[in-house]
């Protein structure tokens, strides 16, 4: 229970960074932290106490994974989510470089002021 709550605290901190900070790189860091916390939350939900990884190894009884394995479904979804996160981060950094090229600053309030 407390693990879920700590993951949500991490989520809120990422969201705070996204909302309250003015530097664009800081905002990107906020998005990254939010994404980490959601991935962690999904994996925490699928954990089974004393569970093993859902992989049958050579010489292992076939029923052992079915009896003791952790939930594989969130793992499969989070695996795709991590790689998507990397692509989206690259997209955000690309936008960020364009903004720096145009306004010569990473500060949001400065960019708003320059736009008039």
């Amino acid at each position: 229970m407390i693990c879920y709550f700590l993951a949500l605290v991490l989520f809120v901190m990422g969201l705070y960074c996204l909302v309250a900070k003015k530097n664009i790189i800081k905002k990107i860091i906020g998005v990254t932290i939010t994404e980490y916390s959601i991935n962690l939350f999904l994996i925490l939900i699928g954990y089974r106490r004393g569970g093993i990884a859902p992989i049958t190894l050579r010489g292992m009884d076939p029923g052992e994974v079915a009896a003791k394995g952790v939930d594989p479904l969130p793992q499969a979804l989070v695996l795709t989510s991590i790689v998507i996160g990397l692509g989206v981060l690259a997209l955000m950094v690309a936008m960020c470089l364009r903004l720096y090229e145009k306004y010569k600053t990473f500060d949001m309030s400065e960019i708003n002021r320059l736009r008039g």
């Binding site: 994996i43 954990y47 569970g51 859902p54 952790v70 991590i82 790689v83 996160g85």
Partner: peptide, 17 residues
């Protein structure tokens, strides 16, 4: 944390990502 939670697939991916 992923490794401790029984998700070695995601742990590998997370390290390299």
């Amino acid at each position: 944390a992923f490794l401790m939670l029984g998700a070695p697939d995601i742990a590998i991916t997370q390290v390299v990502v």
